[in-house]
């Protein structure tokens, strides 16, 4: 339904997106997962006809986003990363405005936004600028949906949002998907990847991998060990000092070690004990999306750090 073909885009010397290709099927909930500056917004802006690629093309239902930009705009709902509604119009006025631009009315497509917009209706007369973060987000989503788009494009909708509101937002996306809306969403939060049908991991303008969340995890090529019952920082230092265990990353109370040569938990234990840590516990573990992302970053030499 949406096809990106060999997209390149640079801003001056900075190659924001480099030869990116992927496609999204009808009814899919597709996630673009990566940190700030990875190129997520650039790709979404090219798709939504607000930015031109340097080369490559994007098709939506077989139509080119440049040549047929009017068709794209009529059929794509876009929620940019920055709050883009009119702050000094009220909640109702904003929604009416967007409905009018798209030659429709609130009543006509009320069914689609009902669940979301109902939570806002008690504040219908409040100016959009005076809404809390969570409410602004719901209004922006309602406005992006009011013309009943076939595809919804959401750029970092949960950025800087607390864990509770993030969960709520993903529940809304799930119910929109159930209504048949195709959704492209970007996020820097790796834990949200698991909620998508398929994901593309993206870093420094390059796609690291595209697959289902399960498929990505299954392709993890190293042995993953989980270290627990240690003080995190000293344990990390002990592991990083040994070349065989240097790919060690903290995960809350645990440390994940990605190893090639070492194949036994006891060998990792030995490294920790040699580093002065007492009674470390080491077990073999299953990687999550964040593990895969970091491993792919290291392999592709795509770390940001100047030390790398």
């Amino acid at each position: 339904m949406v096809e990106f073909h060999n997209i390149n885009k640079s801003y001056g010397e900075n190659e924001a997106v480099k030869d990116v290709s992927f496609s999204v099927g009808e009814g899919e909930l597709f996630g673009l997962i990566g940190p700030d500056g990875a190129g997520k917004s650039t790709l979404f802006r090219i798709l939504t006809t607000v930015l031109l690629a340097d080369s490559g093309n994007v098709l939506f239902n077989g139509k080119d986003v440049v040549a047929d930009y009017k068709y794209i705009r009529e059929n794509v709902g876009y929620m940019p990363g920055k709050f883009s509604l009119y702050q000094d119009l009220s909640v109702t006025e904003n929604l009416k405005f967007f409905a009018t631009i798209f030659n429709t009315t609130i009543d006509e497509n009320y069914e689609l936004i009902k669940d979301i917009y109902q939570q806002l209706e008690p504040f219908g007369n409040r100016k959009a600028g005076a809404l809390s973060g969570g409410m602004k987000q719901k209004l922006a989503l309602s406005c992006a949906l009011i013309h009943k788009p076939k595809v919804l494009v959401l750029d970092e909708p949960t950025f800087g949002v607390d864990a509770v509101s993030r969960k709520e937002f993903w529940d809304m996306l799930k119910s929109l998907k159930a209504k048949g809306v195709t959704i492209l969403v970007s996020t820097p939060y790796m834990d949200e990847a698991e909620l998508c049908d398929r994901i593309a991991l993206i870093q420094k303008g390059r796609i690291l991998d595209i697959n289902t969340p399960k498929g990505i995890v299954e392709q993890f090529e190293r042995q993953l060990f989980i270290v627990s019952n240690v003080a995190i920082y000293p344990a990390l230092q002990a592991l990083e000092n040994n070349p065989a265990t240097q790919n060690a990353y903290s995960f809350g109370q645990e440390i994940h070690v990605y190893a090639d040569e070492i194949t036994s938990a006891n060998a990792i234990k030995q490294v920790l004990e040699n580093g002065g840590l007492k009674n470390p516990e080491v077990s073999v573990g299953t990687p999550n999306i964040e593990d895969c992302f970091m491993d792919l970053m290291v392999r592709g030499n795509l770390e940001e750090s100047a030390h790398a």
């Binding site: 820097p188 870093q203 290291v298």
Partner: peptide, 11 residues
Amino acid sequence: TSGVDPITRRQ
């Protein structure tokens, strides 16, 4: 660390 990549976040 909002929006920072997972490796840099740990650094």
